[in-house]
Amino acid sequence: MSRDSINIIFEWDGEAMRPLSRFHNLANAEFVVGERYRCEVQEDRSWVSHKHQFAWLHEAWLSLPEHIAARFLNEDQMHKHGLIAGGFCDSTTVPCASRAEAERWYKHLRSREPDTVISINGNVLIQFTAWSQSRRAMDAKTFQKSKQAVLDYVDDLLGVQREQAA
């Protein structure tokens, strides 16, 4: 089975990085004695911060005025739109033969993938899909930035004024 990366937790003992005992066999299977490997520090992400985001998203969803709430099927869709608005997304550009064809594709994609944001520019359809915020998909720093982007998006929906930096 091919994979892009593996997660093994190591502990620094003052001289060497040593895998925690539960990762020892995996480290032996993956690494060759005497070879060199690049080590990238990956900060652990707080579950408290993760749960906090979804708690305030739920509260914000319940607080939306009806005319704004009608734009979203549920709080998860609002969350994904916030990620997209913050740039935490992938985009797919599809040139179509005509604007009419782009509009047909728009209707088709909208019915199948309601959580994406789709726009049409002339005869070009652009689809934006939010990134996952799972612990596997996002490191701690990216998660915090994406969480702030979603908070800012929801604040804008609610008309909440953020404090300006002096």
Rank of each mutant, 00 (worst) to 15 (best):
M1C: 14
S2V: 09
R3L: 15
I6F: 10
I6N: 09
I6C: 06
N7K: 08
N7H: 04
I8W: 02
I9P: 11
E11Y: 03
W12L: 03
D13I: 01
R18W: 07
P19F: 07
N25F: 11
N25L: 14
E30S: 14
E30R: 14
V32R: 11
V32L: 07
V33I: 13
G34Y: 02
C39T: 10
C39V: 14
Q42E: 13
Q42D: 10
E43C: 10
R45N: 06
H50F: 12
Q53P: 06
Q53F: 04
A55D: 05
H58N: 15
H58F: 15
E59C: 12
A60F: 07
H67R: 11
I68D: 12
A70L: 00
E75G: 03
D76I: 08
Q77W: 01
H79A: 01
K80T: 01
G82M: 02
I84C: 02
I84L: 03
F88M: 00
S91C: 13
S91H: 11
T93M: 10
V94H: 04
A97V: 10
S98C: 02
R99Y: 10
A100F: 09
E101N: 07
E103Q: 09
W105V: 06
K107M: 15
H108R: 11
H108W: 06
E113D: 10
T116A: 12
S119E: 02
I120M: 13
N123I: 09
L125Y: 03
T129F: 00
T129Q: 00
A130Q: 03
A130G: 06
S134F: 00
A137M: 06
D139G: 13
K141G: 06
S146E: 05
S146I: 07
S146P: 15
K147P: 11
V150E: 04
L151R: 14
D155V: 06
L157M: 15
L157S: 12
L157Y: 08
L158A: 11
L158K: 13
G159E: 02
R162K: 12
A166C: 07
A166T: 07
